[in-house]
């Protein structure tokens, strides 16, 4: 069914994600201006060569602030995906490989949890335990566990009956060696699209929560918080909103296309 060999989604998405990630990682070490340096003369300055994205209400360089905000969002998303991926893989591997009633129970819980939009669950947890960047990182991370666990579980349940696993068992390999040395490398390819789309969802969730004020709190910057600040000056400085929004969209677009491309490749 392949009509053309060039996997546009994979290449464009990969390029976009790579460029964005590179910019963000650079931003950790170097930014054109200090993000706290204010300059009344530059209030709402339009984009120029000196200030690529112009300046905000306090005359701070928007490009530098976007780099800083995107950095926070990026780090949170990385840890969210890491928590979800590691716990999800372990749970999925154990339940998928061993089966039985723990499998039944855990999958039922996963089903119940995935019925709820993750933003809704995250808002509920934050309502009980309070917000902040560390809280939302582990809350979102835990909320991402079911989706990973489910994918891994399906792969392990399938792999369990495969010949290479049976031969490994005959050779006397223990269950944990089989699970993590033999099966895991085979399911990584299936996990990649899930990882990228998870990263995508994490960026989105963090941005949404910080936007409505229950995620990252000041003085930390994040793309969501910057968007809600920028929205106040929609009339006076449309470029402020534009560049913050663009950063969010490009990050999400890049990783969603990458995920799409990876899925096509697996097929």
């Amino acid at each position: 069914m392949k009509k053309f060999n060039f996997n546009g989604f994979l290449w464009i998405g990969g390029l976009l994600s790579a460029v964005m990630s590179l910019l963000i990682v650079t931003g950790f070490f170097w930014r054109p201006y200090s993000t706290t340096a204010m300059n009344a003369a530059d209030k709402f300055a339009r984009p120029s060569l000196a200030h690529l994205m112009g300046c905000d209400d306090l005359g701070r360089d928007i490009f530098s602030r976007v780099l800083e905000g995107a950095g926070t969002s990026f780090l949170i998303a990385v840890f969210v995906v890491l928590i979800g991926f590691v716990l999800g893989t372990v749970i999925g591997a154990l339940t998928g490989y061993f089966g039985g009633w723990p499998d039944e129970v855990l999958m039922r819980i996963c089903d119940a949890l995935t019925a709820f939009p993750s933003i809704l669950l995250a808002i509920v947890v934050v309502a009980v335990v309070g917000g902040g960047k560390y809280t939302i990182t582990w809350v979102l991370g835990l909320l991402f566990v079911p989706s990973f666990a489910r994918i891994v579980r399906a792969e392990y349940a399938r792999a369990r009956e495969m010949n290479y696993v049976k031969s490994a068992r005959l050779m006397g390999a223990g269950p944990f060696r089989i699970m993590f040395r033999h099966i895991l490398p085979n399911v990584i390819a299936v996990m990649l699209p899930a990882l990228t789309i998870g990263f995508n969802n994490a960026i989105l969730a963090e941005a949404s929560m910080s936007y409505v004020g229950i995620g990252v709190q000041p003085p930390d910057a994040s793309l969501g918080r910057m968007l809600s600040e920028a929205q106040t000056y929609l009339k006076a400085a449309p470029h402020y909103v534009l560049f913050v929004a663009l950063a969010i969209v490009l990050l999400i677009l890049g990783f969603s296309m990458l995920s799409e491309g990876l899925q096509h490749r697996n097929r």
Binding site: A207, Q231, L234, P238, A245
Partner: peptide, 22 residues
């Protein structure tokens, strides 16, 4: 569609506010 999917609803809301409101 691919672009539409990548724009979260609240962000689209800000965009619509600017375009049709401002």
């Amino acid at each position: 569609g691919q672009v539409g999917m990548s724009i979260p609803a609240f962000l689209l809301g800000v965009g619509l506010t600017y375009l049709f409101g401002v």
